[in-house]
Design a protein around this nucleic acid. Sequence first.
DNA 1: ACAACTTTCGTAAACGTTTACGAGTCGACC
DNA 2: GGTCGACTCGTAAACGTTTACGAAAGTTGT
Lengths: 343, 343
Amino acid sequence: MNIRRLADHLNISIGTVSRALNNRPGVHPETLEKVLKAATELGYVANQSGRSLRRGATNTIGFVIETGHPAHQAGDQFFYVVLDAMNLYLAEQRYDLVVLPCHSADDPVEFLSRVIARGIVDALVMTATRRVDHRIAQLAKSKLPFMTLGRSETPGNYSWIDLDFEGVARRSVQEVVKLGHRRIAVGLPDNDVALGYHYKAGYLKGLAEAGIAVDESLIIRVPTSEVGGFSLGKQVAGMADQPTALLLCSEVTAAGVYAAFGETGVEAGRDISIVAFRENPLMRFLNPAPACFRLDLDALGTRLGETVLDLLSPDEEISRRRGEIVPLSFVPGKSLQPPRAGS
Amino acid sequence: MNIRRLADHLNISIGTVSRALNNRPGVHPETLEKVLKAATELGYVANQSGRSLRRGATNTIGFVIETGHPAHQAGDQFFYVVLDAMNLYLAEQRYDLVVLPCHSADDPVEFLSRVIARGIVDALVMTATRRVDHRIAQLAKSKLPFMTLGRSETPGNYSWIDLDFEGVARRSVQEVVKLGHRRIAVGLPDNDVALGYHYKAGYLKGLAEAGIAVDESLIIRVPTSEVGGFSLGKQVAGMADQPTALLLCSEVTAAGVYAAFGETGVEAGRDISIVAFRENPLMRFLNPAPACFRLDLDALGTRLGETVLDLLSPDEEISRRRGEIVPLSFVPGKSLQPPRAGS
DNA sequence: ACAACTTTCGTAAACGTTTACGAGTCGACC
DNA sequence: GGTCGACTCGTAAACGTTTACGAAAGTTGT
């Protein structure tokens, strides 16, 4: 079923049919209705290849994920919920969403080259943004509009949305300091993901505000995963001069930390206060419940959709690239206690 | 950069260029090399819309996920790893993979209609297959080749790959029976997902083989999620005539069950033996480690890729639709102990 | 030297849309 | 009645490919 068959069936020209379906002006209300009716009856939907070829646009947004990269995939529904909300918004705006999984073993630059050249999407949402990110330079050179989830230090004309990792870290320090902690450890990712730098910056700022000297031995880098968290927990538990608080920039590491504590007899809250990153369903099963930060994933997904479609707006003002930082709200937890008298 | 510009640059016709790039026969080796060289130099990649329009094929496989549905998303990397492997295989065969998230609130049939009509993919891999699945009837009616991950009872000409839920359940029963258990409970999903039926079938078969009568009160349906598992754990812990073993057909429920046990003083292994479903990294952090089943996700992803591409083969024999059941191997765990003398 | 065949390449049509352009009809107004 | 504009629609070109077909050139065989 193509537009010609539909037009023949109605005894009108394909031009009129096309105009009707795209509700362009200048088509008689009566014919408009006839066309729409026949289209739904015959189940006609415009072929995407023909349409994109002619219009030079595909009405599709690409969401690029790194399938081998553990940081953004581990252990919860972050992406599913965000995708869900984003997809919903895009569908309202008559856009389609495709997820483009970039294999971890692949060269991401080569992967993007293909995506760009094939002209399969009108714009891209990038994830797992690195502090220096070659993909950004590449996309900036191409003319494909894009945005990133997570900012980067690589310059380029693009929009971004980032979680307020710095604010979260700073607030975490404030909360533990308020309870009397002075020896505050932090677990950071061991790779170049941008969030690690912002989290560390907030941590340092918090310490400075509290007049606490930085102890490099309390800044510990581990993979962002349960296993990484386990290693982190073991390390902390085994330190001679144990910290009294531990801040985490990822929720999946929290599970590992708790497991390691369980094996070493350290008790979260009593021995070491814990502040995890994002609140998620899994945390209901950690005992004592870790203090953490709440993020509205639905709102984030919608905002991603809005931002990426803004890039495509013909209105110069709207399509201008901009950055946005999403705040998170503090959620208290039993893992947060004053340091023991002995410490 | 389109094929015309490339041809002009080489002073040959676009026909020859196209033939060279798709290595069709009948092009001089020398020109072939020139074309290939110029193409990489100028970064030419064929526009997908033009190509699909002409060929009627997109060289793209769609992977449909349900974003609102908890069963196939909760709490681990199942999909990421499978996607990764599948993507790798497809890339080797010069196919692209796109993930098509179907919003939970959307009508899946309408969603598929769009996908089909727009002609955006050459074949589909469906997930979260239901026992009676309207999508299958719809796809069977359309001419789009497809396969499902998880079989369905809805008839239709399609291939499927399913995990051996029945075998796992049966083996689980055998393992606990071997230790002396007779009162064996099972947690099943509370919706129409096909796996629930197969798991139950295996459970019943296992009981029959052991000569154990079925007790309907031991067949408990809960949502496939941590929260559902929590509820399941509470229910079991609160039963007057407590079962001595509990079989689970989803790993995410295991976390919830353990949490509920923790709150109610029931100890896995000592009070109730547990057999979880799929081994995953999260389980390292459940204590005592649950017995479970090992699945090679990489192999599964590759197999999905092979199977879906087979559908597209011109060879009648290869493209014939077929079903395949993937076995899982038993992994012992400390959650599995003989029943206490008292019971 | 000519026919017949092979190798290589150019030409043009086709895929299904959208849209610029022009043609036709109708009513209003002078 | 003729001019003008508004409204509606049909025609055809264009998007970038692939491929059937035929042409040109070269090769072989007689």
